[in-house]
Lab assay of single mutants.
Amino acid sequence: SASLEDVKTAVLGLLVILQTKLYTLPASHATRVYEMLVSHIQLHYKHSYTLPIASSIRLQAFDFLLLLRADSLHRLGLPNKDGVVRFSPYCVCDYMEPERGSEKKTSGPLSPPTGPPGPAPAGPAVRLGSVPYSLLFRVLLQCLKQESDWKVLKLVLGRLPESLRYKVLIFTSPCSVDQLCSALCSMLSGPKTLERLRGAPEGF
Rank of each mutant, 00 (worst) to 15 (best):
S1L: 07
V7P: 01
Q179I: 06
L73R: 08
R86T: 08
R165C: 07
V177T: 06
L68D: 02
G190A: 11
V84G: 12
D82Q: 14
W150M: 02
V156W: 00
S182L: 07
L128Q: 13
P109A: 13
L155W: 05
G199N: 12
S176I: 05
H40C: 01
L128R: 14
E5S: 10
S134T: 06
K21M: 01
L184Q: 00
S39N: 13
L25I: 13
L67T: 11
R32Q: 06
P89T: 12
L15N: 10
I170S: 04
P112I: 14
G190T: 15
A2D: 12
H29W: 05
L153K: 01
E103N: 13
D6L: 01
H29Q: 09
H29L: 02
P52V: 02
L184S: 00
E147W: 00
E5V: 08
P116F: 12
G190W: 10
S182G: 13
E162C: 07
P191G: 13
L68K: 02
K8E: 14
L110G: 14
V16R: 15
A54H: 04
R86D: 07
L169I: 04
L73C: 13
S72V: 10
G101I: 13
C185M: 08
P117Y: 10
F87T: 06
E147R: 00
K46L: 09
P113H: 15
R75K: 06
I170G: 03
G115W: 13
K151Q: 15
T172A: 07
R75H: 08
A183T: 09
S186R: 08
V85H: 08
L12G: 14
V131I: 15
S56M: 13
R196S: 07
G83Q: 06
T172I: 01
L144G: 01
K81E: 15
V152M: 02
S163Y: 07
Y95H: 08
Y133C: 05
A10C: 06
I53V: 12
S130R: 11
S148D: 13
V139Q: 07
A27Y: 08
P116C: 15
F171G: 08
S1V: 07
V131A: 09
C185T: 12
E35N: 10
I17F: 03
H29A: 05
I57V: 06
G101C: 14
N80K: 09
A200H: 09
K151V: 14
L169P: 04
Y166E: 07
L76V: 15
L68M: 15
I53H: 03
L157Q: 00
S189C: 11
L157R: 00
H44Q: 04
Q146N: 13
F171M: 12
D149P: 01
L184P: 01
A125G: 12
I41W: 00
P79I: 08
F171V: 09
A27M: 07
S186W: 07
S56I: 09
S48I: 07
E195Q: 12
T24M: 15
V11M: 05
A70E: 02
S28I: 10
V33T: 08
S72I: 11
Y23S: 04
Y166I: 06
P26Y: 04
G158W: 08
R165F: 06
R32E: 04
Y23L: 06
Y166M: 08
Y95P: 09
V168N: 09
L73T: 13
I57K: 00
L164N: 00
T31K: 11
C91A: 08
G108V: 14
D82S: 10
P52Y: 02
G129C: 10
L43G: 12
G101S: 14
K154R: 11
G203E: 09
T50D: 14
S134L: 04
S56R: 08
P113A: 13
F171Q: 10
L136H: 04
M96Q: 10
S56L: 12
T20L: 05
M187D: 01
L188D: 02
V177E: 01
L160S: 00
P26L: 01
Y49K: 01
Y23K: 04
S102N: 11
F204E: 03
E35M: 12
L76A: 12
C185N: 04
L194Q: 08
K21P: 00
Q146G: 07
H74E: 03
E195C: 09
L73M: 12
S56P: 02
P89H: 12
S39T: 13
Q179G: 08
S111R: 10
L135K: 11
A54K: 01
F171K: 12
D6K: 00
V33K: 00
P26F: 02
R32G: 02
S173C: 02
A200T: 12
K21D: 01
Y23G: 04
I17S: 03
F171E: 12
K151C: 12
K154P: 01
L67P: 05
P112Y: 09
F204K: 03
S88H: 01
L4R: 07
S189L: 14
Q179P: 04
L22G: 02
V152A: 00
S173T: 06
T106H: 11
T9L: 07
M36S: 10
I41P: 00
V7T: 07
G83E: 05
L194T: 09
P161W: 05
L14H: 01
S148T: 12
V152Y: 00
G129P: 05
Y133K: 03
A2I: 08
K105Y: 14
C175T: 05
R127P: 12
L141M: 09
D6P: 06
Q42F: 10
L128V: 14
T193A: 13
Y133W: 09
R138K: 12
E97F: 10
Y45M: 00
Y45P: 00
I17N: 03
Y95E: 12
L43F: 10
P52L: 02
L160Y: 01
A10R: 00
Y45R: 00
L68Y: 03
